[in-house]
């Protein structure tokens, strides 16, 4: 199986210079699996982060990551290029997460209690290096991160997707509106309400 996978990965050799997303998409649409794998490598971290912020659960975020790329793989031929590839991909991600949240709502409460700590991120590799390493600062930072994630998990899902894409992933209002198929006015309104909600929830940390 692994040998087959390797041959799948090496099915078409890509040039050394990085290709633009649009070029990789064109190649993937023609059935070039190496091009699709390159797109996966480019966006898997961001897709995982959106899913984790939306779902507040490591295992569910991994499942959402897989669901997102399977859907992208199935439907890449239907992608017309009206928006950037990543906006299209993030739309799939948020839809996958919202579906999971809806399903979860039937089984249990979507929100987490403030007393309930979110999944520990200790063993995950971080992109940004820690400038300060004193145990007190690291502990404080970890607590703040947990508080942020808990507060995000308590946001109503329609605000959560906007805040995650706009404030945590750094998309523009226009990109968020395309990804979530909302008007720019709706994005701005939900973003503001989401921020107001989070400001209240995180007042303890913000007022320090």
């Amino acid at each position: 199986m692994l040998n087959k996978m390797r041959s799948f990965q090496k099915s078409t050799i890509l040039p050394a210079l990085p290709l633009a997303d649009s070029e990789l998409v064109k190649r993937a649409q023609r059935g070039n699996t190496a091009a699709f794998e390159e797109l996966v490598k480019r966006y898997e971290h961001k897709v995982y982060n959106i899913a984790y912020r939306m779902l507040s659960n490591e295992e569910e975020a991994k499942d959402a990551l897989q669901d997102t790329f399977i859907r992208a793989f199935r439907f890449i031929k239907k992608f017309k290029g009206d928006s950037s590839f990543y906006t299209w991909l993030y739309r799939i991600t948020t839809n996958v997460c919202l579906t999971r949240l809806k399903r979860r709502k039937g089984k249990e409460s979507v929100t987490l209690s403030l007393d309930e700590p979110v999944k520990d991120e200790e063993d995950m590799i971080r992109e940004l290096p820690d400038v300060t390493h004193t145990p007190e600062i690291l502990f404080e930072r970890k607590q703040t991160q947990q508080a942020i994630q808990t507060a995000i998990s308590e946001l109503p899902s329609e605000y959560r997707s906007v805040v995650v894409l706009r404030d945590l992933q750094g998309l523009s209002n226009k990109e968020v509106s395309k990804a979530l198929q909302l008007s720019i006015a709706a994005v701005k309104s939900r973003l503001h309400r989401g921020r107001v909600f989070l400001r209240k929830k995180l007042s303890k940390y913000i007022e320090q």
Partner: peptide, 23 residues
């Protein structure tokens, strides 16, 4: 806070599992 909030990188195992399901 949001901007300082670290980006979580997925592990090699998660990447391989993902490639496996796509395969």
């Amino acid at each position: 806070f949001f901007h300082c909030n670290c980006m979580i990188q997925i592990t090699e195992t998660t990447h391989l599992e993902l490639m496996q399901v796509i395969f």
